[in-house]
């Protein structure tokens, strides 16, 4: 009876210990495999009253990277739309040089 009690106590303690250690381990595994997804939006008001809307959803292992990729993607698309109209985009946009673009 005493042996049985000791056996059950051992099982209970080990289960608790396993559970306690497993939780943060599972979290860290999830962190390393999960991706952060960010969407960046942009709208350009054409002088003729029309609009172009851009949205870019990008995923990366870090949120900072996903944010940067989404913002770059949005700016490039807006730059493209602005330049296709014959206008020079605002310097606040991260636009590549004109030579890298092809007019439609």
């Amino acid at each position: 009876m005493k042996k049985l009690f000791i056996f059950f106590m051992a099982v209970a303690v080990s289960t608790f210990a396993f559970a306690s250690s497993e939780t943060p381990l599972a979290k860290s595994i999830l962190k390393s495999v999960s991706k952060c997804t960010v969407t960046a939006y942009g709208t350009y008001h054409y002088p003729n009253g029309n609009n172009v809307d851009v949205s870019c959803t990008k995923s990366a292992s870090s949120c900072a990277q996903a944010q940067a990729d989404a913002a770059n993607c949005r700016d490039l698309n807006v730059c493209n739309a602005v330049r296709s109209f014959g206008l020079e985009p605002s310097p606040t946009l991260n636009c590549p040089k004109v030579s890298e673009f092809e007019n439609p």
Partner: peptide, 18 residues
């Protein structure tokens, strides 16, 4: 390319139907 891919949407809206 950085500005391409599945999650990219470019939509034109016209104030007058051109």
């Amino acid at each position: 390319c950085l500005d391409c891919g599945e999650g990219v949407t470019v939509r034109y809206t016209f104030i007058e139907n051109l």
